[in-house]
């Protein structure tokens, strides 16, 4: 059980990226009537940005 929680917290920045940043990006774009590039949906665009950002944070240990 402890190992499961360790893994969850290890991957938390990635989960945060897709669980929170992605919908936040999509809903902010909707609010300001912005369209995602390359014919992507706003949530698809949010998932790419949020997922990639979270993943690099897991690897580097820094959000920026």
């Amino acid at each position: 059980m402890e190992n499961v929680f360790k893994q969850i917290f290890y991957w938390m920045p990635f989960l945060f990226g897709i669980g929170f940043i992605a919908p936040l990006i999509a809903q902010t774009m909707n609010l300001w009537h912005w369209q995602a590039p390359f014919g992507l949906s706003n949530i698809g665009f949010g998932l790419i940005i949020g997922g990639a950002w979270g993943l690099q944070t897991v690897i580097r240990g820094r959000w920026i």
Binding site: L15, G19, L24
Partner: peptide
């Protein structure tokens, strides 16, 4: 650990139900 997981659960649930900006 429990409080952090609760915080994340609230953020994720609100966000995927259309309330990310509010969260």
């Amino acid at each position: 650990m429990l409080l952090q997981l609760f915080f994340m659960a609230v953020l994720f649930t609100m966000s995927w139900n259309g309330y990310a900006i509010e969260a």
